[in-house]
């Protein structure tokens, strides 16, 4: 069965892909197929949530990585010739999609943030390039047309219709791969999910030492918000957890209020705050690029400005 195929490594992301996949399938008059990893019950759920067909991939052994599925997905696509394959852009998903695209000799739009069907019935895909400076619109000349979709780009399907029926098909078997999983170290839940925060205080390299994060933490607390950071703070200095950095390769956030402290405003960072309602920044360099994309900017030393703001805000709150 041709049509639109979706693959996600987890249930929630699959429901997001089912939402957009269903609309693309309806627009082009084709069927929607979802992959389910190792579980028929989940496959049935995907049908209730809008899939016409589900491919059940065999369960993985403890030491088999998710990429073990690549040859099975490639083989299924060779046999059935889908029009479109969408894959959730998780870290594993991005690798799997690229390998599947190579196996099928087709094009892949990485981290696609908008999809539409054009007048030729082809998929038109948008993605950010040059670190966020530009938006590229692409079509794919080869089949299948492939894209990876960052988590949270589309809202998940919420309407469950348990009268829907569809085809459930087991595919495989999967052959063993030379890559073996030796250990899994889940991240300690050090922080909340900054993609849901209403207020974010974000720190950059203008903060001189780890101990000074407290300044920012106090401001965040007074505002009832959370702490986030730029990539160097998480990746080079390791002062804050990986999942709290904002930007192109980090989180995309959409708070009501973002306050950046000692952040220069490089495009790779600011592309992650595009959807913030109000952007504020504090930087001692009046020419810092962050001011060009801020609603309200304070030119000053964060070490003087931030304590005063926290104090003043706390005073207002008491009133």
């Amino acid at each position: 069965m041709a049509g639109v195929w979706v693959f996600a490594e987890n249930y929630d992301y699959c429901l997001e892909l089912l939402q957009i996949g269903r609309s693309l399938a309806d627009k082009t008059g084709v069927q929607l197929t979802a992959f389910a990893c190792g579980d028929k019950g989940i496959g049935q759920q995907y049908i209730y949530y809008g899939a016409d067909q589900v491919f059940i991939l065999p369960p993985l052994a403890e030491d088999q990585p998710l990429g073990t599925y690549v040859p099975a997905i490639v083989e299924a696509a060779r046999q059935e010739d889908p029009d479109i394959i969408l894959c959730a852009a998780t870290l594993r998903g991005k690798e799997i999609a690229a390998r599947v695209a190579a196996g099928l000799n087709t094009g892949l739009c990485s981290e696609c943030i908008a999809l539409a069907i054009n007048s030729d019935n082809k998929l038109e895909m948008k993605r950010v390039i040059y670190g966020g400076a530009a938006m590229q619109t692409l079509t794919c000349k080869t089949r299948p047309q492939m894209a990876t979709i960052p988590p949270h780009t589309f809202t998940p399907v919420t309407e469950l219709d348990d009268t829907r029926s569809g085809i459930i098909k087991e595919i495989g078997p999967i052959s063993s791969t030379p890559v073996k999983v030796l250990a899994k170290k889940p991240r300690a839940k050090e922080s909340g999910d900054i993609t849901r925060s209403r207020v974010l205080v974000c720190v950059g390299r203008g903060v001189e030492k780890e101990g000074d994060l407290k300044l920012a933490g106090d401001l965040a607390e007074t505002l009832g918000g959370d702490l986030a950071c730029t990539r160097p703070i998480a990746e080079e200095l390791h002062w804050m957890p990986q999942e709290t950095y904002i930007g192109l390769s980090g989180q995309k956030v959409k708070p009501e209020l973002y306050i950046g402290l000692g952040i220069s405003g490089q495009i790779q960072h600011t592309t992650g705050i595009r959807d913030a309602r109000v952007i504020c920044s504090i930087n001692k360099d009046e020419d810092a690029p962050i001011f060009k994309i801020s609603d309200y900017g304070i030119v000053g030393d964060l070490y003087e400005v931030v304590p005063f703001l926290s104090q003043e805000l706390a005073r207002l709150k008491k009133k």
Binding site: G107, A134, T137, K292, D295, V299
Partner: peptide, 29 residues
């Protein structure tokens, strides 16, 4: 495999209002 339909600069239109670091400016902020 891919064809570029368009490349356009992304824009971010914001207020771009600046404040000084003096106390009355911060209160205004």
């Amino acid at each position: 495999c891919l064809e570029t339909v368009e490349i356009k600069a992304t824009t971010m239109e914001r207020n771009c209002e600046k404040f000084g670091a003096e106390k009355d400016e911060l209160k205004r902020f």
